[in-house]
Amino acid sequence: MEVIAIQKSTLEGMKNELKELLELTENATQKYAPIFKEEKWLDNQEVCLMMNITKRTLQTYKDKGLLPYSRLNRKNYYKLSDVQALLKAGQPYKSNEDGVIDQ
C-alpha cells in the first residue's frame, strides 16, 4: 500500500474544486432533464427497426432534411414524435431487399 502525503490546504482546494464540479453537473442535469423527460429519444438502430429501413435510407432522410436529429457525443438521436410523423406521412424513400432505394 502506497501512502502519499499532501498539504492540508492542497487537499481542501481539491475538495472545493470537486464540490464546484458536482454543482455544475447538478445544474446541467436540472437544466436539461425536462427536455429528455418530455420526449422519448431513439438512436439509429431503434429508428431503423421501427421504420423497417436500412442505415443508408436513414442517412438519406437526414441528408434531405426529412428527419430532424440531434447529435450527442458523436451519436445521433431522433425524437419519437418526429419518427412517428414521418411514418404517418409515408416514407418517401425505402430500400428494397437489394439495398436499392425506391421512390
Results as ranks from 00 to 15, higher is better:
Asp102Ile: 05
Val100Gln: 04
Ala33Ser: 07
Leu66His: 00
Asn96Arg: 00
Gln30Ser: 09
Gly13Cys: 01
Pro68Asn: 11
Ala33Glu: 12
Gln7His: 15
Asn44Ile: 00
Lys37Pro: 04
Thr10Pro: 07
Asn16Gly: 10
Leu18Asp: 09
Arg71Val: 15
Cys48Thr: 00
Thr57Glu: 01
Ile4Leu: 07
Ser81Gln: 09
Asp102Arg: 06
Lys8Gly: 11
Lys40Leu: 14
Asp98Thr: 11
Ile101Glu: 08
Glu46Phe: 06
Asp102Val: 10
Glu38Thr: 13
Ile6Val: 15
Asp63Pro: 10
Glu2Trp: 15
Glu20Ala: 10
Asn76Gly: 08
Glu97Leu: 05
Val47Leu: 02
Glu39Pro: 08
Gln7Leu: 14
Glu12Phe: 05
Thr57Gln: 06
Tyr77Asp: 08
Pro92Met: 01
Asp98Pro: 09
Leu67Phe: 04
Ile6Gln: 09
Thr10Met: 14
Lys62Phe: 01
Leu49Val: 13
Ser9Pro: 05
Thr57Pro: 02
Ala85Trp: 12
Asp43Met: 05
Asp82His: 07
Glu20Thr: 11
Ile35Gly: 14
Lys79Gln: 05
Thr54Pro: 03
Lys55Asp: 09
Glu46Ala: 02
Glu2Leu: 15
Gln30Phe: 15
Leu22Tyr: 01
Asn16Tyr: 04
Ile101Ser: 05
Ala33Leu: 15
Asp63Ile: 11
Gly99Ser: 10
Ile101Lys: 06
Lys79Ser: 04
Met1Gly: 14
Thr57Val: 12
Leu18Val: 09
Ala33Gly: 14
Asn44Ser: 02
Gln84Tyr: 13
Ser70Met: 13
Leu11Val: 04
Gln59Ile: 06
Leu67His: 02
Glu38Lys: 07
Met51Leu: 13
Arg74Lys: 10
Ala33Arg: 14
Trp41Ala: 06
Ile53Asp: 01
Gly65Ala: 06
Leu11His: 10
Asn27His: 13
Thr54Asn: 00
Gln59Val: 04
Tyr61Lys: 00
Leu66Val: 11
Thr60Ile: 12
Glu46Asn: 00
Asp63Phe: 02
Leu86Gln: 03
Lys40Trp: 14
Lys88Thr: 13
Ser9Trp: 07
Leu49Glu: 07
Asn27Leu: 12
Met14Lys: 09
Ala28Asn: 11
Pro68Tyr: 04
Arg71Leu: 11
Gly13Met: 03
Met14Ile: 10
Glu39Val: 13
Lys62Gly: 02
Lys31Tyr: 10
Gln59Asn: 08
Thr60His: 13
Met51Asn: 06
Trp41Ile: 10
Met51Cys: 11
Thr54Tyr: 05
Thr25Arg: 09
Glu39Ser: 07
Arg74Pro: 09
Tyr61Trp: 08
Lys31Ala: 13
Leu42Gln: 02
Gln45Val: 01
Thr54Gly: 07
Pro68Gln: 08
Ala5Glu: 15
Asn96Phe: 01
Leu21Ile: 02
Val83Tyr: 00
Lys79Asn: 04
